[in-house]
Design a protein around this nucleic acid. Structure first.
Length: 498
RNA sequence: GCGGCCGUAGUCUAGCGGUCAGGACCGAGGCUUCCCAAGCCUCUAGCCCGGGUUCGAAUCCCGGCGGCCGCACCA
C-alpha cells in the first residue's frame, strides 16, 4: 500500500474521516470528520485562534455568513474573475479556456468576453482545436462559486462564499468603529467555504466544501512596522524558496532578507510568525516546511507579495500548499468602497486613507491531512505522534485487571479527570492492546490502575511516544496533566517512581 | 469535465459464469493471562447502485455513483 492509501485507510478505520453520504455511494469533493477527526479539527482551530489572535492586541475572532449576496461577490471580483469560459473540442473532448484560445489565435486578449462574444470570435477567426484541429463546441461559462437563489421565487441571487476573507472586509467598517478606530485591526474567521472544483481529488486536499482559517490584518502602511517587535524575529532563519531560485530552500534570516530590500519588514515579521506556528506549535519538522514565493504570473493580480506555506506530504508526492501569506494592499476595501458607496477610508493619526490588508490564510483540512501524514508512524504498530494539544483524546484510563477492585477505582479516576481533560475509559482486551489502540489515535497519555494503586492511591502514567511510565498520585494527576498539556513540563522530567 | 485503471465484511484481500463468497486484521463475547496488539473458543459483518445477457452473474455487457492516475482546472 502506498502512503496515501495507508493514511486514508487509517483515517476511515479510526474515525477521522467519512465520505459524505457514504451509504448512497458518496459525493465527490465532500468528506465528513468522524469522532476523532472532529476533535482534531476543533483543536487545530483552537490552537490556530489562540496563536494568531495573539499576534496583535487588537486582533479578534468574528464569524460571518456562508451566503453572500451577488453584489458583494461582484464587488470582490469573484463573479467576473472566477468565471472562465470553457470550450470543448467536439472531436477529442479537450477543454480549452476561451480567453487563452482566442489570444493564441488572434494575438488579442480574450479576457472579459462573455459566451456570445467568444462564439463570434471563434466563428470570425475560424478557431479550431489546438490539439487535434477538430471543431469546437459551444462556449460554456464556468464559475467556481456555487450559485444560490434566495426567497420564494429565487429573486435574490447569491453565492456560497468561496473564501472567508470577504466576511472580514464586509464587517470592517463596523468593527473598526466599535473597536475605537485603532490600527492595526485583525479580523479572523474560521469556517466553511465552498468552491465548485472541477476535479476534487486526493482526499481532503481539494474538496468542494472545506474549512478555512484566515486572519485579515488591516493596517496603516506608514505606521504598521513601528508596532511590531522586529528584534524578536530578526535572527529567525526563514526557510524560503525564492522566485529566482525554485530549486532549493534558502535558509535566510529575517535580517538578511530585509537587507536585500525587496520584502518589507512587516511582511517578513509575519512570515516568521507563520513559520513559528508550524515549527513550534504544530511541531512540523524543519525539513518538511517551506515558504514558497509565487511570481507575478502565479499570484493574483491584487497580491503584491505572495508566499505559499508548504508542508511536505509524502502521501501526495511532496511539498503541497497548506496556506498563504498575501499582501493584498487596499484592493479589497477599495473595491467594496466603490461598489457599496460606503466610506472605507479611515482617519488615523492625522491622515485619511484606505487601510491595506495582510492576509494570513490557511486551508484547515489540508493542514490536518498534512499532520496525519507527518505524524502517522506505521510500523509494526501504528502510532500517531500528534502534538499533545491536538490529540483527539488527551488521556485514557485503564484497570490493569478486570477484578479486585481495579475497575472501580479506574472508573472513579476516569469520572474525575474527564471533567478537565478529553478522556477515554477502556477495559477491553489486554493492557498492551489498549495502549496500542490509544497509540493509533494519538492519545498521548494512558493511566493504568494496578494492584499498588488501591493502597497507594496512585497509578501509572504512560507516555505515547516513549512508552515510558511513571507513578503519579491521584491527587497530582490534574496538575501534572495540565502542565504536560501546556508544555510547561516534559514527561521525561517527571519524578520517576514505582 | 475528458481518457485510463479500479470498486468483495470496519480495514486489507482470495475468488473472475454454478463456491454455504474463503482468509487475515480489527471489533464483540467467553476462558486464561496481566504493563505494551500473547493464546484458545464462539460470534458479528461483505460482492457500490440500477438495468441487461444467461437455466444460473461477485464474475460478462450497458448506465449511474465513487476512488486513484494523466490531461485540463486550482481565483
Amino acid at each position: 500500500m502506498g502512503r496515501y492509501d495507508e493514511l486514508m485507510s487509517l483515517s476511515l478505520r479510526k474515525g477521522f474521516l467519512i465520505p459524505s453520504a457514504e451509504i448512497y455511494g458518496g459525493l465527490a469533493g465532500f468528506y465528513e470528520y468522524g469522532h476523532n477527526g472532529a476533535r482534531l479539527l476543533r483543536k487545530w482551530e483552537d490552537l490556530w485562534i489562540e496563536y494568531f489572535l495573539g499576534l496583535g492586541e487588537n486582533y479578534h475572532l468574528i464569524d460571518s455568513s456562508s451566503v453572500l449576496p451577488y453584489s458583494a461577490l461582484e464587488a470582490s471580483g469573484h463573479v467576473d474573475l472566477f468565471t472562465d469560459i470553457l470550450i470543448y473540442c467536439t472531436k477529442c473532448k479537450e477543454a480549452h479556456r476561451a480567453d487563452q484560445l482566442i489570444e493564441a489565435v488572434t494575438g488579442t486578449s480574450g479576457e472579459g468576453m462573455d459566451a456570445a462574444q467568444v462564439k463570434d470570435a471563434i466563428m470570425d477567426n475560424d478557431v479550431r482545436c489546438q490539439r487535434c484541429g477538430g471543431t469546437l463546441g459551444e462556449p460554456v461559462p464556468f464559475n467556481i462559486m456555487f450559485p444560490l437563489s434566495i426567497g420564494p421565487r429565487g429573486e435574490e441571487k447569491a453565492f456560497l462564499r468561496p473564501e472567508t476573507a470577504q466576511g472580514a472586509y464586509l464587517s470592517f467598517p463596523r468593527e473598526f468603529e466599535i473597536l475605537r478606530k485603532r490600527l492595526p485591526l485583525g479580523l479572523a474567521i474560521v469556517g466553511r467555504v465552498y468552491r465548485n472544483e472541477i476535479s476534487p481529488r486526493q482526499g481532503t486536499y481539494r474538496m468542494r466544501e472545506f474549512h478555512q482559517a484566515e486572519l485579515q490584518i488591516f493596517f496603516d502602511p506608514e505606521t504598521f512596522e513601528r508596532g511590531l517587535d522586529l528584534r524578536e524575529v530578526e535572527d529567525v532563519s526563514l526557510r524560503v524558496v525564492r522566485e529566482e531560485d525554485r530549486e532549493r530552500v534558502a535558509e535566510r534570516t529575517v535580517i538578511e532578507l530585509l537587507d536585500e530590500g525587496d520584502l518589507p519588514a512587516f511582511y517578513l515579521y509575519h512570515l516568521a510568525k507563520v513559520q513559528e506556528f508550524y515549527l513550534d506549535a504544530l511541531q512540523v519538522p524543519q525539513d518538511a516546511f517551506r515558504l514558497y514565493e509565487l511570481n507575478q504570473a502565479e499570484r493574483a493580480f491584487y497580491n503584491r507579495i505572495h508566499f505559499d506555506v508548504q508542508v511536505r506530504m509524502d502521501s501526495l508526492g511532496g511539498f503541497r500548499e497548506v496556506g498563504g501569506v498575501h499582501y493584498r494592499t487596499d484592493y479589497d476595501l477599495t473595491r467594496h468602497a466603490e461598489h457599496s458607496k460606503k466610506r472605507m477610508e479611515v482617519f488615523h493619526q492625522g491622515r485619511r486613507f484606505i487601510p491595506e490588508v495582510l492576509e494570513l490564510s490557511f486551508g484547515i483540512d489540508r493542514n490536518i491531512w498534512a499532520l496525519l501524514d507527518l505524524d502517522y508512524d506505521i510500523g509494526k504498530k501504528a502510532v500517531l505522534h500528534i502534538p499533545v494539544r491536538l490529540a483527539p483524546f488527551t488521556c485514557a484510563v485503564f484497570p490493569l485487571l478486570n477484578r479486585g477492585g481495579l475497575p472501580e477505582m479506574a472508573r472513579r479516576v476516569y469520572r474525575e479527570i474527564r471533567r478537565w481533560f478529553d478522556t477515554l475509559y477502556d477495559d477491553s482486551g489486554s493492557i498492551g492492546r489498549r495502549y496500542a489502540r490509544m497509540d493509533e489515535i494519538g492519545t498521548p497519555y494512558c493511566l493504568t490502575v494496578d494492584h499498588e494503586s488501591l493502597e497507594a492511591e496512585d497509578l501509572t502514567l504512560r507516555e505515547r511516544d516513549s512508552t515510558d511510565q511513571v507513578r503519579v498520585s491521584v491527587g497530582e494527576l490534574r496538575p501534572t496533566l495540565t502542565r504536560l498539556l501546556e508544555g510547561s513540563i516534559r514527561f521525561e522530567n517527571l519524578q520517576v517512581g514505582g
